[in-house]
Amino acid sequence: MAVFVFAAQMLNFPVGVGVSGHLLGGALAAVLAGPWVATLAVTVVLIVQALVFADGGLTALGTNVLLMAVVGVWVGWAVFVAVRALLPRTTAMVPVAAAVAALVSVPATAAVFTGLFAIGGEAPVDLGTMLSLMLGWHAVIGIGEAIITFLAVSAVIATRPDLVRGAAPALDRAREERLAAACTTASEGVA
């Protein structure tokens, strides 16, 4: 699982270089593997990136883990669960909920970063300016991430829906319906 998140992070956006041009991937990982595994996986990826690939920096590791593994994953998961509850319980709706989760989790992560900067930052940057700058940039990244998440989750659902953790309720329902249909056919056969 961690390997996949890593490989997905390597799929850099062909679009602009921003404060963070990388796929954050937190929402995608949460939908595919569940929030607990996703937190662990993203954390490990960040440690390895910092120590082995010298990407992300050693002192920024704590911030990165908090933002990407905790905020990114859990905001993504919370939004995903909320949206999933509103939509019909079918597997076709899972990528939609995942896309919304990705869309929200990226600017949310950026907002939390701005909050951290307000607490610990050394420069007297006008927070309103910074917040709007960060949110603007990350809304664009969030849209890109939402599209990628939607398409990637759809691709996995098409082949192995049982591997998508977030699709479990929809699959349960599909199974119950099949079972009910089978029972009806069977009882009709008996009658």
């Binding site: 996949f4 490989a7 997905a8 799929l11 595919l32 599209i147 990628i148 939607f150 398409l151 990637a152 989750v153 759809s154 691709a155 996995v156 098409a158 082949t159 192995r160 591997l163």
Partner: peptide, 10 residues
Amino acid sequence: LASTAGALFV
């Protein structure tokens, strides 16, 4: 690219 990522995951 996204279906590549999906296939890679599977």
